[in-house]
Amino acid sequence: MLSHASPSGTEKRPRARLGPRLALASAAAFLVAVPFTLLLVLVETSFAPLSRLDRSVAESLHAWALEHPAWVTLLDLWTDAFSPESWRVLVVLSTAWLVHRKAYRLAAWAVTTITVGGLLGLGMKWLVDRARPHLPDPVAVAPGASFPSGHALNAALGAGVLILLILPFLSRRGRALLWCAGGVIVAGVAYTRVALGVHWVSDVVAGVILGAAVVIATTAAFETWRRDMGRRPVEPHLEGVEPEAASEIGPERNTE
């Protein structure tokens, strides 16, 4: 009898922590999704204060861009370097490496996150069908609908995926710096889209929020699956989505 008590108690403790942790992850995803839903409603109802804010910021940044052509060149370089295509290529290359290293679970998570987020963004663009800003003497043009910003969405998705894959290899300080760098890149992409006059402020905010919500949701789902498989509970934002796989996905070592 006593010989069975200890393993059973050990097994129950992680499971006892699972409910609260998953509830917290679900609440986080919900809280991130709420601002997006609010923005969607305000955009769909043409909420006057939001419309005035969008117009005011767009016109101010556009006037600055017209007076500083060198700044426009820098904005173009930034928005092209961190375009949706760039993030997709980086995630696909990372996925290919994960498959090569037989880290199939991480590969599935990465490709699912970027794909689901991208499809949601396209669906929202089709559903809302918001017109892009029409400004005099535009410094840039972009096709398609405006809400949410595809650049901002994919920057949040791509940065989130790559950061969560890299975290297990870094020190505490390195992890903090990586999150800061990711935040700067995403914020920079969002800014360029408004400053170039191809999106409203609410478009880029919605894109970042939607991207973050998708990353949080898929990470929570992955964490649930891990624990069902008997893996130890982790904090993905600090340790990555599967820190145990660091030895699998790291650089290949000569075993001969």
Rank of each mutant, 00 (worst) to 15 (best):
F82L: 10
V92G: 08
E44A: 09
L122Q: 10
L66A: 08
L42N: 07
T218L: 03
T95L: 06
W71N: 04
D203Q: 10
H134T: 15
L98N: 08
L38C: 12
L24M: 07
I166F: 13
H151S: 11
A70M: 10
A190M: 15
A70S: 11
S8P: 06
G240Y: 04
L90S: 14
T79C: 04
T218W: 00
L106V: 06
T95Y: 02
I249Q: 02
R193F: 02
L66D: 06
W64I: 01
P35H: 00
V194Q: 08
A63N: 07
E67G: 06
V99H: 05
H68G: 12
V128M: 03
R193L: 08
G19Q: 06
R253L: 05
T10I: 07
A181M: 13
S247K: 07
V241K: 06
D228W: 15
S86G: 08
A212Q: 09
S86Y: 01
P49I: 00
A25V: 04
R226G: 15
D54S: 03
S8G: 06
L61M: 09
P84T: 01
A217M: 09
H100M: 06
P20Q: 07
L135E: 10
F36E: 04
R101S: 09
W225V: 15
T79R: 00
V201D: 13
A107H: 02
A108V: 12
L170I: 12
L18G: 06
A195E: 06
L127W: 07
H100F: 09
A159R: 03
I114L: 05
A187I: 05
L66W: 00
V189N: 12
L61W: 00
V99S: 07
G150P: 12
E44V: 04
P143G: 14
A152N: 13
A33G: 08
G158N: 12
R130G: 10
A221G: 15
